[in-house]
Amino acid sequence: MAQKPNQRGATRESIKATKHNWPTRTSFSPSKYFRQHQTTLTESFMRLVHYPLASVMTVMVIAIALSLPGGLYVLLKNVQSVTDQWEQQSVITLYLFPNLEDTQALALSHRLSAQADIASVEYISKEEGLRYFERSSGYEQIMSALPENPLPIVLRVIPRQTVDITTLSSLQALRNQLAAQKEVEYAELDAQWLQRLANILSFGQRFVYALSVLLVVAVLLIVGNTIRMAVESRRDEVLVMKLVGATDAYIRRPFLYMGFWFGVLGGFFASLCILVLSWWVSAPAERLIDLYQSGFQLQTFNADEIILCLTISAFIGVFGAWIAVNRHIATIELQ
């Protein structure tokens, strides 16, 4: 080997240009690569199975840590969907004087619908009001016991503006203007309640985000520590593998897969926890919802969210393992 002009080239060349026929870095083949990964994937899983107690404990700690933000997310999602529905129904309800004639009420209704800042006006006669009340409140017997219909004519005024923080004051002005009408006994704007809810909700959202970040960091630490101990317990093996020519990537791989399994299994059990929990609370929650409004469906983790949860947890697992392995394998050197 006399080639010297290009030292680096000569070096690589000399590694390739030998009589042996076993694979080196230069002979990359996809099938070999995938076979190696597949083997490592199963082997690292079998290793977890080999130490069932320790593995189950780690997986459950991860699952519990993940199910907390996951559960809060589901809760938030439900509250949000409830408030979304309320937002659509956000109206100014006008209770007219009980002694008002139908014609006067209709005239008011027409006058109001012509107003520029009002989208529509729904006229609810005394009879309709009674039927609606009977149907939704379960007070049929009491209502039928009354000598006459005590309900006033109600106008449901839907403003053009949707309710949010910026439009609240102008909606309140509209409410005051409507309340000042001589036919109106009382005007109610439900936006204020919505406003409070929105504030509570955004507070809740931030709370869930902060908690999620904390718990993700906790999971990273748990995985990192578990992998660090795994590397330490396989110190001799790492040394022997380095001795027989294992690349750093090869040595790292089983530990990364271990982190992957911890993450995926943790995410799986977290999803399971959330599904079981939401099933458990669904019966009382649906009864509660029925009392307020119909048509609302209690939401739980759907397939997309389960997949997202598994993906995120797998990523956290691999990332935690990666940090631990990189920090740790470098300290294990042949000497």
């Binding site: 680096r8 070096t11 030998t18 042996h20 076993w22 870095r25 020519g245 294992a246």
Partner: peptide, 13 residues
């Protein structure tokens, strides 16, 4: 002249 990355491949020989 061998880099750190080349060491495993050297050891295999």
């Amino acid at each position: 002249t061998l880099s750190r990355r080349a060491i495993p491949h050297h050891r295999r020989r």
